[in-house]
C-alpha cells in the first residue's frame, strides 16, 4: 500500500475523487493545494493554533493533524462551503460587528470551531465562560480576545462583560465545582 492512491471524499457537499494522494499528505495540504480551498489557513501545523480548523462529518477537526487518506468516504466542510449558510453568517456577522476581525488570519478557524460548538449544543447554548474556554484552541494575536468575547456575547445574547477578570477565560483549578 506504499505509494499514491486515489482518494474519494465529499468536500463542501460535492464528491471529489483525487488521483494519487501520498500517504503523508495532510488534510490541510489537500484542501489548500489540491482543491484550492485557501480559506483554511496554515498556522503552526502542530495543533497549537486552530487556524486550520475544518469540519469532518460536521465536527471541528484540525486539518494539520489529520491525514488526507483518513478522509476516504467522509464529508469535509471548509469555510468556503459554510459561508452563505445561516449558521455561518450568524457567527461571521457577530465577529464583524464586534470588531473581532483584525488581520483576519485566525478568523476562518474561529468560525469553524464555533459553528461546531453551536451544533453540539442543540439542547441549549452554553454560558459565556464555557464557550470562551472551549474556543481556547484558537489563537488570535491581534485582538487580545476581548472583541472575540464581545462577539460570543452577541451570539449568546448575553450581556457583554464590561471588564475582563481572568476568571472569564480560565477554568480555575482551585475552585471546586
Amino acid at each position: 500500500m506504499r505509494g499514491d492512491l486515489p482518494l474519494t471524499l465529499r468536500v463542501n457537499g460535492s464528491e471529489q475523487t483525487l488521483p494519487a494522494v501520498p500517504a503523508d499528505t495532510k488534510l490541510l495540504d489537500l484542501l489548500r493545494w489540491r482543491l484550492g480551498l485557501k480559506g483554511t489557513k496554515e498556522g503552526c501545523r502542530t495543533g497549537g493554533c486552530g487556524a486550520c480548523t475544518v469540519l469532518v462529518n460536521g465536527e471541528s477537526v484540525l486539518s494539520c493533524l489529520t491525514l488526507a487518506r483518513e478522509m476516504e468516504g467522509q464529508e469535509v466542510t471548509t469555510v468556503e462551503g459554510l459561508s452563505g449558510t445561516a449558521e455561518a453568517e450568524a457567527v461571521q456577522r457577530a465577529f464583524v460587528e464586534a470588531g473581532a476581525v483584525q488581520c483576519g488570519y485566525c478568523t476562518p478557524g474561529f468560525v469553524m470551531a464555533l459553528v461546531s460548538l453551536r451544533r453540539e449544543r442543540r439542547d441549549g447554548p452554553p454560558d459565556l465562560p464555557t464557550l470562551a474556554s472551549e474556543l481556547g484552541g484558537n489563537l488570535c494575536r491581534c485582538t487580545g480576545y476581548y472583541s472575540i468575547v464581545r462577539a460570543l456575547a452577541g451570539l449568546l445574547a448575553a450581556p457583554i462583560p464590561p471588564e475582563l477578570p481572568k476568571s472569564t477565560f480560565s477554568v480555575d483549578p482551585g475552585r471546586s465545582p
Binding site: G50, E59, S60, V61, L65, A113, S116, E134, G137, V171
Partner: peptide, 12 residues
Amino acid sequence: IREVGSVPLRHR
C-alpha cells in the same frame, strides 16, 4: 479530558 488540547483536537 477537558484539558487535553482543544475541542477540535479532542474530536480525533
